[in-house]
Amino acid sequence: MNGKSMRRAAFVLLSACFIGAGCVTINIYFPAAAAEKAADRIIDEVWQLKGGATVPAVKPETK
């Protein structure tokens, strides 16, 4: 009886953990560095900045 309710509690706890973890890791986190990398790749293509001769070095981000 006791074991069963413990197991059930663990199940509930784990569910909460999963839901909580799911929220935190998936919904709020925005990969800023990856987005910058992606933006730079697209900007390279659109503006034809191959080689980066005229491109200033990437500024360190404060984010």
Partner: peptide
């Protein structure tokens, strides 16, 4: 769920944007 928690975290953490 355990698999999801364990499996999801590293995958998201090192996310690369799909373009």
């Amino acid at each position: 769920m355990m698999a999801a928690v364990i499996g999801a975290s590293p995958a998201v953490a090192q996310a690369n944007l799909e373009i």
